[in-house]
């Protein structure tokens, strides 16, 4: 029979152990090359003609890198924003609402981008 102490030991206040810590590091490492790729993509395509930009993002390699970036960044963003809320938003209710909002935000930005990249990449 597990005592309350035994049940909580090693899992911390969020009951998820080091899972979030580890996920933040994995997405951070993935984001290094992906963000470099993103910045170069942006800088070299600002104000470029529509056909050129579309053809660029339609390349399978570019689409895969962009998808990887958006998923990794959305996860990383959600963890980071929640960490700030945990530290600075006072009161249970306000904190829950703030966490909901940043979760929806990260999911929304990520999903919108993923759908856009797929639509461009699959050419419809």
């Amino acid at each position: 029979m597990a005592t309350p102490l035994k049940r909580v030991r090693g899992l911390g206040a969020a009951h998820r152990g080091t899972e979030t810590f580890w996920r933040q590091r994995m997405t951070a490492i993935a984001n290094i090359p992906l963000v470099i790729f993103l910045i170069l993509s942006i800088v070299s395509h600002i104000g470029a003609p529509y056909d050129e930009v579309r053809a660029y993002f339609a390349q399978p390699v570019v689409a895969v890198l962009m998808l990887a970036l958006m998923i990794s960044a959305a996860i990383h963003m959600r963890i980071g924003l929640k960490e700030i809320i945990d530290d600075y938003v006072q009161g249970e209710g306000a904190r829950v609402i703030a966490i909901l909002l940043v979760t929806f935000f990260a999911a929304g930005v990520g999903l919108a981008s993923v759908v856009a990249i797929l639509k461009i990449g699959l050419g419809s």
Binding site: R54, M66, A73, M77, V109, S113, V115, A116, I117, I120
Partner: peptide
């Protein structure tokens, strides 16, 4: 995080 709104906006516009 705010910057990613710009990125999403750009990508959705291209699509």
């Amino acid at each position: 995080a705010v910057g990613f709104i710009l990125l999403a906006w750009w990508l959705v516009a291209i699509a």
